[in-house]
């Protein structure tokens, strides 16, 4: 599934850049990079991406999970949570929102490709 328009929500610039580079290299379109929850909501509303890579812990008044909740209200696209934390509490909170996937950093582009070409393509 090429040319997927992906919104990357990541407050770590270098990580966001790496993701963007690899996604573009993989033939996808990064329609925006947001580093705050509220920015992510705005971009999702404006860009209407095909999928969102959403870091859970980001700056701003709303974290990734809060932003995802809001985005869900107006946009029904796959949201892939990413997190550097392996603790169960956070993972359980995130999974309670029934994301399309929950990936633990470091994320390889292959994992994203697998999701985009596998599960999400069928939708």
């Amino acid at each position: 599934m090429k040319h997927t328009r992906i919104l990357v929500v990541e407050d770590e610039f270098m990580i966001a850049s790496q993701l963007k580079t690899n996604l573009i290299k993989g033939g996808h379109i990064v329609c925006g990079i947001a580093s705050r929850g509220e920015d992510a909501i705005d971009m999702a509303r404006k860009e209407v991406p095909d999928a969102i890579l959403m870091d859970i812990r980001i700056r701003g008044s709303q974290d990734g999970m809060a932003a995802a909740k809001v985005i869900r209200t107006f946009l029904d696209v796959p949201i892939i949570f990413t997190s550097g934390y392996a603790d169960h509490e956070m993972r359980d909170q995130a999974l309670a929102l029934q994301p399309s996937a929950y990936l633990l950093k470091p994320i390889s582009i292959a994992q994203i490709e697998e999701l985009l070409e596998g599960d999400f393509a069928a939708k």
């Binding site: 270098m14 990580i15 850049s17 790496q18 580079t21 690899n22 550097g84 950093k105």
Partner: peptide
């Protein structure tokens, strides 16, 4: 992870 991203 950031270092890895930079190297990549």
């Amino acid at each position: 992870s950031v270092i890895i991203a930079m190297l990549e």
